[in-house]
Amino acid sequence: MFADLKAWSPELLTGIRLTVGMTFGSMAIALALGLALALGRISLNAWIRTPVIAFVELIRGSPLLLQLFYIYYVLPALGLRLTPIQAGLLGLGVNYAAYLSEVFRAGIAAVGSGQREASESLGMSPSQTMRHIILPQAWRIVIPPTGNYFISLFKDTALVSTISIAELMFQGQLIASDTFRYTEIYSIIFVIYVAISVPASAGVRWLERYFNRSGQRR
């Protein structure tokens, strides 16, 4: 098995690089878009709020795999042709943004109304209040669930193998169909995913402790 590992290592390394790259790339999209959706969700303007709610429900109500296929195979018919990597980043990013927006919305709601009142009583505008008072406190609240979604996203990148992105899962399938040594290759892939996601979970727990230290809570 170790000899196999050595022989397959160039392909596996390429796969790991793409898997990790897809994870960080789509997480960045998910964080930014998720926050925008969360703010839209709590907007007082129904013309913003209603479409955002509809969009989030659309994304949460359908399979990620279908969304990836839709972006990769259907959007070109509508005139938007994306490379597999672009389609993968967009699909994963938008899907996770929908889930994260609900996490962020709950985090914002969990910051007490007294904080908003105190800030606005000092003459701060609603957007200053959001940036300087609400979001920094909400951020601490949402770190654990956001971290969990991050780990989950790392594993879900395996789905983009279906739109021909040569990430780790895809490399495994290539090697398997070349060599028929399913046990060895899929065991190796198994170990690689776990070897990355378990320390990443520990990292998330460490972040959570880091942000809650020094008695910054009421």
């Binding site: 007294g114 009142e117 800030s119 009583s121 000092l122 910054q216 809570r217 009421r218």
Partner: peptide, 15 residues
């Protein structure tokens, strides 16, 4: 609000 200060029962300091 710029001209009117407010002190609350629950303090509402920014933690």
């Amino acid at each position: 609000r710029r001209e009117v200060g407010m002190v609350f029962q629950q303090f509402n300091l920014f933690p």
